[in-house]
Amino acid sequence: MTSSNTYRLRSLWLSLNHFLQNYLHLTAVIVLEFRQWLTMILSISVLLNLGMVFAFSFISGSRDPELGRYFVSGAAVMSLVTLGVMMVAQDMAQSRRNGAILYYASLPISKTAFILAVVSGNGIAAVPGMIITLLVGSWYFGFTLAINPLIFAAIPLSAISLAGVGAAIGLGIPNWRVAGLVAQATMFFIMFFAPVMIPLDRLPTILQLTGKILPPTYAAQAFRASLQPDITVALLIDLAILAVFGLGSLAIVAKTLKWRLE
């Protein structure tokens, strides 16, 4: 191996190491920022999720375990939506407004590591709410929980692709109040007009079509499938689509977020 190759490999390793260190430390910062509010965030997200589960059960007038599995897994995905879309959008819009992003931009850190850390931190915060929703929901509807190992791919991929939506709202909309409003409207849309809580065949054709191009549909499908013991081709396809959505949205966000004022 020539010395220039060794040099290239070494500098590649140093950049990768720098990126990983940045990512881990920034994720720790985001998670620790949640710590103070953890009880509140957890209680509200669990109440919201279970509220959705019970409300949909009352509306359908059924405690059928299969339908229950649909509602419960949908509500668990809504945890990721709440934190991934709502919190990321609000976080980004607020940090821009109060200058927190300016502080991070003044440090010698990777911008992509920062975005990934915001996404991961919010994703991690959603996990306890998801678990509680699954446990209480399975007890209420009387179905048994089976966890497929691919759930460990489904959750982060869903979180990244959903957070991409949140970050796009938080960074793309100049005013923080409007950004907050749009994030809430998006959540409302996902809850009622995407196949997350409502089965795809119950939605009007236009919404079935829009569902096909939006990440929450695939996040819900993948999450649902990973609550079954078998690894199916459909699940793998959903995960692949989520990976494309996730990487695509990260790339767009990394390009949109400028470490500069203009």
Binding site: H18, H25, V29, N98, A100, L102, I109
Partner: peptide
Amino acid sequence: MIGYLPQTSFAMRDLRGEEAIYFTGRLKG
């Protein structure tokens, strides 16, 4: 090459002071 103190900063405000200092040090390398 720069140590920066902004006029106001809202970064890491939910962290304990010593944690914010620690993570800033690590992020500085």
